[in-house]
Simulated scan of single mutants.
Amino acid sequence: MDDASLLLDQRSASQAASDKDVRAWASGRRVFVSSLITDMPDERAAVRAAIEAVGATAVMFEDLGAQDISAEQAYLSGVRSSEVYVGMWGSRYGVRMPDGYSATHAEFLEAERSGLRLCLFVHGETAGEMDGSQRDLIQSARNLYTTSPWSNPADLGRRVRRRLEELAAEELAPWVRVGRTLFRAREIINDGRTISLAAAVRSDALHAELVRLRDNRAGSVPFASAHTALPVQIAELSTRTVSTIGHEERLTMVAQQQRASNMRASINGVSADEVVRRALSDGLFGTSMLSQQMGWLARPIDPLAQLRGLGLDDSVLRPVARVLFSERLLTEQAASRIDSFALGPSRQGARRLRAIWTPPQVYVNKPDPASVSIDGTVLGL
């Protein structure tokens, strides 16, 4: 397969979820609301209303009640029990706690560590009275994430609701790779032996490639999502054509035996997990962490090579990059799961990339292996 010839259904990035689907996604979902409480009572009320309007539960410090734990433990526990983090940052940083961070800063860091979806809003920058520490926090966050302003509490509530609806659409239609095609699936069912998915494909070229894969039943092709990667054989493809460029696809694939990993080996006293980390750093960031003593067994790894130079919109690039990164580590058995993946906005052609993954557990009677991470600057995306 020629990786440079990936077929991306870029029109599918605009898919929106219905109100019914948004409420189904939000049901039982917890959204942590972070801000200086005394500074933003009206904003907090507006955000609570927006969260509850889509059917989710707002997690707010003032609702935590009397507990026999410290306030710091209580709000960090609230972050860890949530799926989405909404941060509202004004001009004040807040009182520093014993660890040196303000409460809102600590909540943001905990949300990052815990892999929550982040919704960041900033107000008051133009007034010129922002605390230096607050400005540093905002600038640091913007290395990886996009922030949104707001003009008044009602405007903030609308923006929060719209962002939650966008998150629902993303998670209800995850990006997948089948062979050299990449598109958004409306539904994925995986019983360990077969994988069935439904998708609205808006590319004739991509549809034609799926038909070709169906008709070429002899070989296996790669399948990947943000959480799964394995070779499959196309068993069935049925298509309902709804317009000249719209195809409702239903695809059934049979899982194939995965090949043995060639990445799980220590080299000259360097652990297998460290070899992978160095190889990814060299391939993605252009570092020189692999020593010459490692020889041909360790070479740079760039899971995003086929995306470089394509100039993709962020709404396509970020989820597709995560799928390809996850695919490489999961297929090569270098990770049992990808804990977080964040690709920052482009700044003069450079993007910050940070990823955390958990290596496979080698021995069942041993503790879970420590997570591994990389953090650096990617060019050309």
Rank of each mutant, 00 (worst) to 15 (best):
A208H: 09
L172Y: 00
I195W: 00
R163A: 12
V160H: 04
Y145P: 09
R186P: 01
T181A: 14
R158D: 11
L164H: 08
L210D: 03
L144H: 05
V201F: 03
N190P: 04
L213P: 00
L167V: 08
A218G: 09
A173K: 05
A198E: 12
E209I: 02
A199C: 10
D215E: 15
G157I: 05
L172G: 06
I188V: 15
L197Q: 01
G157L: 05
L197I: 04
A200Q: 13
S151W: 04
Y145L: 15
R161L: 10
R193P: 00
A200C: 08
D215W: 11
E171R: 04
R212F: 11
R177C: 08
V201E: 01
R161N: 11
A168W: 00
R214N: 13
A141W: 06
A154S: 11
E187T: 06
R135V: 06
H207M: 13
R162W: 08
R217M: 09
D204T: 13
V211M: 10
A173F: 01
R212C: 09
I189C: 03
F183M: 02
R217W: 12
R177Y: 00
E187D: 13
G179V: 03
A173V: 05
R161A: 10
F183N: 00
R158E: 15
E171F: 00
H207P: 05
E165Y: 06
S140M: 14
D155R: 07
L197A: 03
S151D: 13
T146S: 14
I195C: 04
S151T: 12
T194I: 08
A205F: 03
E170M: 09
R142V: 07
S151V: 12
R163P: 01
R217N: 13
